[in-house]
Design a protein around this nucleic acid. Structure first.
Lengths: 159, 159
DNA sequence: GTCCATGCAAATGATTTGCAGTATC
DNA sequence: GATACTGCAAATCATTTGCATGGAC
């Protein structure tokens, strides 16, 4: 994904904020890491090589800002770190979907797209009067690799 | 919900652990607070009245233990606290479902039961080979009260 | 030139841990 | 009586914040 500097600048200006090298770089790192789920520390590490003088605090502040601007999403995989990923942009509208498959064995995290939840949201609205605007779904289980490995081990035990 | 002391004791014994007043009390508080989502601190507060000499560290350790025993669930509402609730027990099997409606305005959290996700899980398994064993769903939006309040305010603005 | 933003180091705050005394089995 | 458990206080660790300097407009 490519960042449009001018769009970004405009977006910041609207809120009386300035565009800085640091803000741009953080956003770029996230844009280049689409599909990954980076912690603040990881973003910092990736930036430091080219920008040795950046501070971790700035990464935290920037990530907070990008979150408020709606450019990125925060996800929580319950490992003690907040993670960030660039938002799915669809024209002017954000998808605001966080579907993650978290393997309980190898810890690998995959994302998937699925619109089946819309039926669920409609149901909730009609039954409870709760108007859903965003959701987060985490499916825990075993990825293909770990499932197959487990199956093989079970077969060995049987012999 | 009522805790069976002897069942609990037996469960602990299986792992070479001892039953203590503190462990029982923590479990009881959670059992009495079914449907709520208590932080460690909140559990501690509720216990302290009757047991002034209990330590917060013990609550943390106990909650960790109950989690490992599968008696309680941890949920994360992204407010900086880990929250705990007694697990839905259905005979011998835990439901392992965490469906929460989180109001973006008043912050109220409600739970709901919904089995529509099973179709989703089946789909994921067939398409990606990922075997789902547990899931967590958070629906963010506006609860009935806040939705109505907002509607009223919009009407006022129009006049 | 005016503010906003940054870097650094110190502060915060939830959770964890070391240790000496205490309770359970 | 042995060993696990507790309370306390100190440690940890991700994240936030105060403040003086630097950069964007």
């Amino acid at each position: 994904m490519k960042i449009d500097r001018e769009d970004f600048k405009r977006l910041l200006k609207e809120k009386g904020l300035k565009m800085t090298r640091q803000r741009l770089v953080v956003l770029e790192v996230l844009a280049e890491s689409s599909g990954q789920h980076l912690t603040a520390e990881e973003i910092y590490e990736r930036i430091k090589a080219a920008n040795p003088d950046i501070g971790l605090a700035t990464v935290y502040r920037t990530v907070q800002l990008l979150l408020e601007l709606g450019l990125i999403d925060r996800i929580n995989l319950d490992d003690g770190f907040a993670r960030y990923e660039i938002g799915d942009v669809d024209g002017k509208h954000r998808h605001h979907r966080h579907h993650h498959l978290i393997c309980l064995k190898c810890g690998k995290v995959a994302a998937f797209q699925e619109d089946m939840l819309e039926a669920l949201e409609t149901g909730v609205r009609e039954a409870l009067g709760f108007r859903v605007t965003d959701h987060e779904v985490k499916l825990y289980g075993y990825c293909r690799g770990c499932s197959e490995q487990e199956k093989r081990q079970n077969q060995e035990e049987e012999t």
